[in-house]
């Protein structure tokens, strides 16, 4: 019954953590803002959709595929390191 001593309880809890802790409510607010801003930042890019260069790239790949496999780097080993597709795709 007389175990609880509200006055001394809090300081004891405080000293358990090495550095000053954020108020839990502030911490929650900050976490939800972090989530929001993270998505906002990310969605700014997503909202830009598919830039022309990629639509064009896929269109060219499509045509290359239809007109025969001769131009394809079908050896497949290291496609990203260059080859015909790379030259055709980068239309800067």
């Amino acid at each position: 019954m007389k175990r609880i001593k509200p006055v001394s309880l809090e300081p004891t809890m405080r000293t358990e953590t090495a550095k000053p802790k954020l108020d839990p409510k502030v911490a929650r607010d900050i976490q939800s803002r972090i989530g929001q801003q993270l998505r906002e930042m990310y969605d700014d890019v997503v909202k830009q959709g598919v830039p022309d260069r990629f639509a064009e790239l896929l269109r060219q790949l499509d045509e290359a595929g239809k007109s025969g496999a001769a131009q394809q780097p079908s050896a497949g080993g290291e496609p990203a390191s260059g080859g015909d597709l790379d030259k055709k795709g980068v239309g800067e």
């Binding site: 930042m41 890019v45 997503v46």
Partner: peptide, 29 residues
């Protein structure tokens, strides 16, 4: 997937042009 790939790529390299090159390379590969 390209819009999401770009957003991720930009977050990795912090540079839009390099990110787009990276996405293009990804698509080709």
């Amino acid at each position: 997937s390209i819009p999401n790939l770009r957003a991720f790529a930009i977050s990795l390299c912090g540079n839009v042009d390099r990110a787009d090159d990276l996405v293009q390379e990804t698509v080709l590969r």
